[in-house]
Design a binder for these strands. Structure first.
Length: 142
DNA sequence: GCCAACGTTGGC
DNA sequence: GCCAACGTTGGC
């Protein structure tokens, strides 16, 4: 049974377009040094889907990604306790869903994005996922 | 660029 | 094991 997540990235460091450029192999989601975020990645299964969110610039969900490798040690960390999954880009959203959109949508009032803006890898509830995609007007192929 | 919120570190 | 100090994130 598929779970949903949200991956946050500063687009001037690593954007959704950068992930698209990595192709089907995707890219390891390295650099996470937060236990909650790491634990979320440990809980991910192959095929789980995620919202790709641009923080700071845009502050919006711009695309959908998929987990293509289970959690493994982060090659950029000196300590093997830091793990990460690999993700690849799957689709763009038709219309980006901004943080403001999420804040004013009552059905998203419990969303982690709205309530804990600092967590960089977050779980997304099934119904929240549906609402976000509805606000996005669906997805389109890459 | 500021600062609030949060997480981590380290002294006690 | 508490908590003050510090560092980082990310919205504004």
């Amino acid at each position: 049974m598929m779970a949903y997540w949200l991956f946050k990235s500063e687009p001037d460091v690593f954007s959704f377009d950068d992930l698209i450029a990595k192709g089907d192999k995707g890219e390891q989601w390295d650099g996470v040094r937060n236990y909650q975020a790491r634990n979320n990645m440990r809980a991910m299964k192959l095929g789980d889907r995620g919202l790709f969110y641009h923080s700071n610039i845009g502050k919006e969900v711009v695309g959908i990604c998929e987990v293509v490798a289970l959690a493994h040690p982060d090659s950029t960390a000196d300590d093997p306790k830091w793990e990460c999954v690999d993700i690849k880009a799957v689709a763009r959203v038709v219309r980006p869903v901004t943080l403001d959109d999420a804040k004013v949508e009552p059905r998203l009032s419990n969303m982690v994005l709205v309530n804990n803006s600092r967590l960089s890898v977050q779980p997304v509830a099934d119904d929240e996922w549906d609402v976000v995609l509805e606000l996005a007007g669906g997805t389109r192929a890459l």
